[in-house]
């Protein structure tokens, strides 16, 4: 096997396996004190090392759940339980996903609009751009609970408050990427449009917009992941009603570590799927526009 080859599948797999081994080892180490305590209390003296290891891997409320426990919990809460049930992780993931998608859509539209204004107006560029950058140094997630609670107080509930946080997090990468993208046509190309007597609108739709699309998709991949973070944090202050964030909070209230870890993995899988989905749309759009792979 050629480990120095071009692909990165083999190294990634081996590193993943190593992480799995380390995880199992850490499970034994972290869960051992509680297990020893249990043995002492139940007067179990004759325990073998193998029994000890399997016991630490299968505790009810472990300090660190073992990978197979998380996998079983994920399987149970997605495949076995009915989707409509409150115990179903798919149900919670859907609640989070809908807020994420709404926020992502609003953030992308806002980002694109701002970028269009910034590119076409010098004063907008000078006045808005510094504040857009500054807006991201503000720990917006800290404001999340207030936005949720305050909007709840004036009877705006449901998806919108969560989505607003997602919007705030996701518009930034889109603005920055689109400003760069809309400015990426070279002077030569702009001059050509000028010799065609193209209006600003025509220049925008026939030159700037197509040139900016690759930048748009790159920044949308970042934006969709940020949007998910916003939705999850937005679910924390509502007091564990529904959504992956609520599962995290509920798990931490009741010490259900397996539930926390499975919610965390569900969120990671969701983030991966969303990024892949944006990538697929990108490939379709780019192919329609006539790009050759």
């Amino acid at each position: 096997m050629n480990l120095r080859g071009a692909g990165s599948a083999v190294p990634v797999t081996i590193v993943l396996l190593a992480i799995l081994v380390i995880w199992y080892a850490a499970t034994i180490w972290l869960n051992a004190p509680w297990q020893l305590d249990m043995y002492q209390r139940n007067h179990v003296t004759a325990w073998s090392p193998t029994q000890f290891v399997t016991d630490t891997w299968n505790q009810d409320r472990p300090v660190l759940p073992s990978p197979h426990q998380v996998a079983v919990e994920l399987w149970k809460t997605t495949a076995v339980v009915a989707v409509s049930s409150k115990k179903s992780l798919i149900y919670h993931a859907w609640v989070t996903l809908s807020a994420t998608l709404l926020g992502f859509a609003m953030g992308s539209v806002l980002g694109i609009l701002l970028a269009v204004f910034i590119v076409h107006n010098n004063a907008m560029d000078r006045s808005l751009m510094p504040w857009i950058v500054a807006s991201q140094t503000v720990p917006i997630l800290a404001i999340a609970p207030m936005i949720i609670v305050v909007l709840n107080a004036v009877n705006i509930t449901g998806l919108l408050p969560k989505s607003l946080i997602s919007t705030y997090l996701s518009f930034f990468p889109v603005v920055v990427g689109m400003v760069k993208g809309l400015r990426s046509p070279e002077q030569l190309q702009l001059d050509l449009m000028h010799t065609y007597n193209a209006s600003r609108l025509q220049t925008f739709f026939k030159l700037r917009w197509p040139t900016a699309l690759p930048y748009l998709f790159t920044s949308m991949k970042i934006a969709v992941a940020a949007s998910l973070v916003g939705a999850i944090v937005g679910e924390l202050p509502t007091g564990a009603v529904a959504g992956l964030g609520a599962r995290l909070l509920g798990g931490s209230y009741y010490g259900q570590t397996v539930q926390i870890w499975s919610a965390l993995f569900a969120a990671s899988i969701l983030a991966g799927l969303l990024v892949i989905a944006v990538g697929i749309v990108e490939r379709l759009v780019v192919r329609r526009m006539g790009a050759r792979p």
Binding site: R4, I232, L244, A267, G272
Partner: peptide
Amino acid sequence: PFLKRGLLPLGSFVSALPMVGIAPI
């Protein structure tokens, strides 16, 4: 180079994940 090729894709994937989720743990 082997570790770099193995860890880098994972590292960039993990930096896109909602890492705040580990807070309760």
